[in-house]
Each structure stands twice: as C-alpha cells, then as structure tokens.
Design a protein around this nucleic acid. Structure first.
Lengths: 355, 355
DNA sequence: CTGTTAGCGCTTTCAT
DNA sequence: ATGAAAGCGCTAACAG
C-alpha cells in the first residue's frame, strides 16, 4: 500500500557509490566522475527520488533571510492585512530556517521610496516580497535583485513585463472594469461619474490605482462613451481640506450622482456623505477596511471590491520558500478572485479564516 | 536580531538534567521525579520552548494515517474540488509522515453509506475528514471515532452539536438566506418560487441542502410570508424523466418565474430551460461546476453561490495535522465566505490558484 | 574524485 | 528515576 520512501542511502547502494557522491550529484557541486554522475542520475530518475526537505533543512543549517517591503500603515489599514499573511507564513516556515525582516516605505513620497529601495538593492538576503506601488523604483529594484539571483515576488499590483518569480494579486485592470460594471451597467441614465484619488509626491499615481483606472476607463470608452468622468484629488490626511474640496465639487457639479475610489479609502468619502446627509450618491470602493465595512453597512457605500490581501501576503512569501526550499516553481501569475461585497453578503466575509 | 532557538539540550542544561528527562516531561510519559518535573517545567515556561516539529517527525518515525470520506463523484463534480484540496494538503504533509486513504460512499443511498461508515468506525487510523451528507450516520461515526480519540473534521456541511475537531464550510443556513435575498429582494412582484431537489434513498434529504432550504424558508417566512413555495423532486440520472416532470410542472404552474437548486446541479435545470427556450425564468444555483458556469455565462442561471471547496478540503486535512503534529488547536467553526457569482465576475473566479 | 564521519534537534532504547 | 548512546535522512568537512 504505502511504498517506503526512497532515501539517499538507497540511491547510493543502487548506483554502487556512497551517499556523499549522491549528495554531490543532487546539488551538482562537481567533483564527480562522468561515470558516477551518469549512474547516479539514472537511478535518481528511475526511482523518482524526492528529497526529504525537512531532514535537509535540519542538516544543512542553512537559513533564509526574506525581506518584505510594504508601505507604512496604520493597524487598521489594508496593508496590515497583507502583512498579517506574510507574517503568518513566516511563522510556519521558521523551523525550516526562514527569518523575515519587514521594511516600510512612504507610499506618499516616491523619492523617499526610491532611495530606500536603492539601499535594499545591495543588501544581503535570499528573497523579497514587494508591493510595487511605485512602478519605476519597484521595477528597478526587482531587476537588480533578480540579476543577483535573489527572487522577487510582487503582491497587490502587477507591473507588466517585470521579470519576477511570481505575482499574487488582482488583475487590477479587470477589477476596474468590474467596478464600472457594478456602478454603471444597471444605470443607463447615469451621465456623470467622479473618481476620487489621493495626491502624492513624485510619481503622480500609485501603480495599483492607475491600472484600475485604466480598466475602468476602457469599459467607459467601450460601453458608455458619452459619460462624463470627473476627477477629484484629495489629501490623505487633511480632513477639513477635503470637506472643502468636496463641498466645492458638489456645488459645481450637482448632477454627479455616482463615484468611486480606486484606493482603499472609500470611507473618507462616505464620512463626507454622512456629514452632509447626502443620500442620493452611489459610491464604490475597494478593500475590507473597518471604515469601509461600516460605510457599506450604513449604506454610504454601495459596493466594495475585495482581493484577499492576507492570501496575497501568505502565498507571496510561500512562493519564495517553494522556489528556494521545496524546489518547486510557483506559477508566475496568480490572480485573486475579485469578491463583490454588498450589504447583503458582507457579514459572511468578516472574521473568517482567510488563509 | 534573530534570537537563537532554544533546543531540548539547552533546556536540559538549564534545568540541570539530561535531554532524556526533558523529553519525558515534554511528552509526559512519567518516570520523572517531582523535583525534576518541577525544574524542567519551570525552565520550559520561562524559555517559552517550542519544539522543532520537523526534527521530531524525523526522529520519531511516527506515521499518521488519515482517512477522507467523500461521495463517489465524477471528475467534473463539486466533490472533485474538495478532494483536490485534501490531496494537495496530503502531498505537502508527506514528509511529516502523513498518508491519506480516500474512501467513497454512495450519496444517493443512506443504507449503503451507513454500513460503510460502520466498517470505518472500527478501523485503525489517526484522523478522518468527512462530508456529512447523511446526518445520522455521520454523527454516529463522528461520535464513535472521537470517543476513540480519533479526531474528525467535517467539510461541506455542518451538523449542529456534533463534537468534532473542526468544521470547514459554509454557514449553510446563511447561504440559503443569501439565495433568497438574491432571488427575491429586488423583485417584490414575485409570487411563486420553486425549489428543485434530487430524490435519494433513506434519509429524505442531504444535510447540506436541508440546511440551505431551512435558511431560505426562514427568509421567506420573515420577509415574504405570502410567497408560494413549490417543490419538485427530480432524478439524479434520468434526464428524460426529468424533462417530463418539468414539462408537467410548468404546464400546471405557468406563473412560476423563479427557482433554485440547493444542490450543485443547477445545470440540469438550465439544460431544460435551454431545451424549451424558456427565457423568462430566473434560476439560482450553487457551486462552480463546469455545467453551472456554462449556464451562468449563457444566461440560463442568474446567480451561483460558491464556497471554495478546495480550501475546505485543504484546510480540513490541515486541521488534523495541526492538532496531531503541530500541537495547535484549529478553530472549531471555520465558515467560508459565500462568493456571489454572476455573468460579470465569473471569469475572475475561474482558474485561479484557490489554495 | 570518493567514502567516511560527525552532527542537525529530536526520540527511543537501554543500562545504571 | 536518569543519562548515555544510537539513529531518523540529510549535509558538509575531511581524509585519502
């Protein structure tokens, strides 16, 4: 029934060599004669040998130092969910010799991010999980690291053509299309829509939100070419200023009855709608933040699109281990489903063990 | 930065005893003096010792034999997805000494299932993953096994008050409510709805579908007390017979414009709707079977509710390992999110790495 | 180039 | 009741 596992010792005996030689072949570190090499490889193939990675980890005492690069964030933030997934996976890999260092960058300042990434590019480490909010600096860092044969995994948003080990996250453009469908498809009478975004220093827009916006605009172009799309930049930390900006916007454009954020801060708009008791506005946002969930339940947000952030982090780090420790190649493109959340089903998404 | 891990050897030295004694304490297998016990426990606590489970597995050569009880099924079936998750997890645990045996029961014959379960109840094994389609036989089996200190995990549907290690699956009743919401909430004019189900031998209804139906009916009672709820039993394998039954039903009840299945066979109804070119009927179903997905895309099914079957299987088996190998207690109730699938978002759920 | 050997952290046997 | 020692499958250092 259960076939006994083939061990290095078995291979050695069958090939008529010693364990040491088999080990040298397995890790192709030379010092083996043509003859032995051939014999050992043959037996290895025929027996379909699979190493016991746990015994290997135990004996080699090799350690893996992984880095995780995420934006600085509050505890309740979207990024905390990604980080929780990474940390959970790191804990599971600890006895395999894995350690994790978390590094945070400023998501509102590309220049600061860039110089941080430059210092990371020359660091000693075995793998990096990275949220490429800033496209160029991220691409550059990934290129440098991969050239040093240090595998890089992207989470959250993708960068086309990046040569990396794997990506875990949404198909961002598709999610923008989905947002458009949810907001517009059943409301052919809508003539105006507004996109809210956050101002930042350097690169004008985060990679993620740019891709979502492009997907959204593609739908608009194809399905609703006559739609007027407004855009309003807000500050990520000046609440009073935002209220003024929103007041002015809606005074100038009273006809706008629908809008969305491509970032996770829909609750900021929802707070404003609540403040002004504005109930004739349909708002769509992203991610299961506490504030967003509250706004969804209260009716200020109509839809949230979620993307399983813990899974992204968890699998992102796991991909590094798969490649380096388990010698398995993870799939390169791992697109998370886009969960559509409404008042009706939101409760079933909260507090479930997402990993 | 990285603190070196505490080993048994360290504990032994600090407590002034030998490794052997520490091991005896750790596995409380006696033969230790009060004195040593106290000292060792103290150090263990203070040092927050955590064993290296991989070294432990390697040395002990202990093996774990897990059983997985699922209905016989076709490759394209819902159950194949659950099984794939279990198998995947089993592969990951192999070098930890885990082996998996799959056993299949007849989901259309409770008596056959019952006698199979009775033979399983007396088998030697270390843990069981079980889909409790038949409530009573499953309860009985779980009770017997747990009494033998063999942990049992339920997947797919839950049985209230079952004393088991863990459950992974939907909140079935909630999903019935969700089905009602999707089908009825925005259609206050609907006066009739029909529930399709499959006839089976023995217990009149599968546990899962019964719970879903109860949730559905609860919504109806509370929100739509005047709704007429029809019920139609079909055969799981007699397609022509079903066509006749459906023809007769719709001839007698032309006013019924909405219906649902609580099992995963919505595509059977969809096929009929297609056959009769019946387009004025709103149909809801469960699970991402190929047939269901096709029907959703073709417009014969309006909604599908999905429940992440691979994750259920994967985590179900994992829970056994967590408990037995990693000495962690998994959460008892693990409710999967209910994914709402429509023509709009279905594509984003297909072919993604769900585990 | 090759085989032998020690040892990773832990379990288990076996004297004492 | 306790410690010493062997060994799990594998790696790595070291003689030869």
């Amino acid at each position: 029934m259960t076939k006994p596992k083939i061990r290095i010792k078995d291979i050695a005996e069958m090939a008529g060599v010693s364990k040491g030689t088999v080990d040298r072949v397995l890790h192709n570190r030379g010092e083996v004669s043509e003859e032995s090499l051939r014999k050992v490889k043959k037996v290895l193939r025929e027996m379909n040998y699979e190493p016991n990675v746990y015994a290997s980890a135990l004996a080699s005492k090799r350690t893996y130092r992984f880095l995780c690069l995420l934006p600085q964030h509050a505890e309740s933030d979207y990024w905390a969910q990604v980080e929780a997934g990474v940390v959970k996976q790191a804990a599971e890999l600890r006895d395999l010799g894995v350690s994790l260092e978390r590094i945070y960058f400023d998501q509102y300042d590309m220049y600061a991010c860039q110089s941080l990434f430059e210092s990371v590019a020359i660091r000693e480490c075995d793998g990096v999980v990275l949220a490429p909010l800033f496209k160029e600096p991220s691409l550059m860092l990934a290129r440098t690291l991969m050239a040093r044969t240090i595998p890089v995994v992207f989470v959250d948003s993708h960068v086309a053509d990046a040569r990396i080990l794997a990506y875990y996250g949404m198909d961002s453009a598709c999610s923008g299309k989905l947002a458009a469908t949810l907001l517009l498809a059943e409301h052919p009478d809508i003539k105006d829509v507004v996109m809210f975004h956050l101002a930042r220093r350097g690169e004008s827009e985060a990679n993620q939100t740019r891709l979502r916006r492009e997907g959204f605009m593609e739908y608009v172009r194809e399905q609703r070419p006559r739609l007027t799309v407004h855009s309003l930049a807000l500050s990520w930390n000046d609440r009073e200023g935002n209220t003024l900006l929103l007041d002015r916007f809606f005074a100038e454009h009273p006809e706008v009855k629908a809008g969305l954020t491509f970032n996770s801060r829909a609750y900021m708009i929802a707070e404003y709608l609540n403040l002004r008791s504005k109930s004739d506005f349909r708002l769509l946002g992203y991610d299961l933040l506490e504030g967003n969930v509250g706004a969804l339940k209260a009716g200020h947000v109509s839809y949230l699109i979620a993307q399983r952030p813990e899974q992204q982090g968890y699998h992102g780090l796991r991909a590094l281990a798969q490649s380096l420790i388990f010698h398995q190649k993870p799939a390169e493109l791992n697109l998370m489903p886009m969960d559509i959340l409404t008042k009706e089903n939101i409760d079933f998404y909260l507090n479930f063990p997402s990993i």
